[in-house]
Nucleic acid binder design. Structure first.
Lengths: 202, 202
DNA sequence: CCAAAAACTTGCGTGCCCCGCATCTTTGCG
DNA sequence: CGCAAAGATGCGGGGCACGCAAGTTTTTGG
């Protein structure tokens, strides 16, 4: 990888991280694009060369994570049953990545609260959902490759991808509602199991 | 219903309809909020008393439709099996509402093309997905009422609602991909059936 | 090793958008 | 009828996204 690409990746990461940190700390409307650019050490104009808006910058890490999960699904052993592979990848994706170690958080509690109010921001939910839709397309491709179905002719891979993202979102939302008493891995496993069972009424 | 509320509803409908029509005809960025307000016979400032932005105005009809579907689900006979009720409502919601008769379209072909490019607009997809999420909450409430589950404690109603919306979206997207050769009702029925069967690999 | 080319950053200017506030008009009600 | 509540409108401010035209840095090819 050349110097050029490396610097681009660094700038992009710096901008995204700065956006997240500032918004979590101060709230969405109390952060101007100008602030984010300054925190990342670039001009305000440059921010828009990397992201179309505040929302995109914030969501980009999330999107990367989901994309990586789609890749992981491709990388699972070919013989493995589909739902086994999906569950494994979904659970693996919950583990905090190495980028968390690079940006330690002082007050864990305040950070979590900030994140909650951040994702509650209406302006961001659109961007979050769009990121989900983007990732969904890649998951669908992975599922198609795995099951030998045709992306453009069969609904099946899209259906699976969409439903898996739904399970993810629902488990996440439920975890926020219920507090940290129940563990995400359990919720996600339950959600996926229920879906694979056809969602019979309880 | 008093005069006051009736006029509000009319203005709201006029704004939403004008927004859709203009954007379908001219494209998203070639329509200014000012144009929409003018077409609805109202001041530009008033537009923002009804909608937070162009996207919201365009999406509001879609959202109303989904909301009505959630109500329909509540209205189904109580003894009916859940998935039967859901499928019925999902199919009923495909029928064009009475508002279509009030706004006949001259060139059916051009209109459909315009709608396709409209919903392809990135700026709108966020709003569309947000509307879906809003409706999802109401569907979840309806499912909870039907199955005697607790919205805040059980994941089940959210899971069902989310997955049903997913089926809807996937069927819609597939219909756009495949062209009008295959009928939406068939696609939706297939999607829901597959989900109720636990999405076994084909 | 060096110059031309390609890629990236930056400043500036433009058009649009969302919203708070004050004011004026309309509606609902006793 | 007359007053209180609700809505419409005009004005102005704070921002944001992006096109364009330099300036600067990396890459490339001889």
């Amino acid at each position: 990888m050349g110097l050029r690409e490396r610097k681009k990746a660094e700038t992009r990461a710096a901008l995204s991280w700065a956006a997240i940190r500032l918004v979590v700390e101060r709230g969405f409307d109390n952060v101007k694009v100008e602030d984010i650019a300054a925190a990342a050490g670039v001009s305000p104009r440059t921010f828009n060369n990397y992201f179309a808006g505040k929302g995109d910058a914030i969501v980009s890490r999330h999107l990367d994570r989901l994309r990586r999960a789609a890749d992981d699904l491709r990388a699972r052993p070919a013989g493995e049953p589909l739902w086994t592979a999906i569950t494994a990848v979904a659970l693996a994706q919950l583990e905090p990545g190495p980028e968390l170690a690079a940006h330690p958080v002082a007050d864990q509690e305040a950070w979590a609260a900030g994140v909650r109010t951040m994702i509650a921001e209406p302006a961001l939910q659109g961007d979050l959902l769009r990121a989900g839709a983007l990732a969904e397309a890649e998951v669908a491709a992975a599922v198609a490759g795995r099951t030998g179905t045709d992306l453009s002719k069969d609904m099946y891979p899209h259906l699976v991808a969409s439903v898996v993202m739904a399970a993810n979102n629902v488990a996440q939302a439920h975890s926020l509602r219920a507090g940290p008493h129940v563990s995400m891995p359990e919720l996600l496993t339950e959600a996926l199991a229920r879906i694979a069972a056809g969602l019979p009424p309880p």
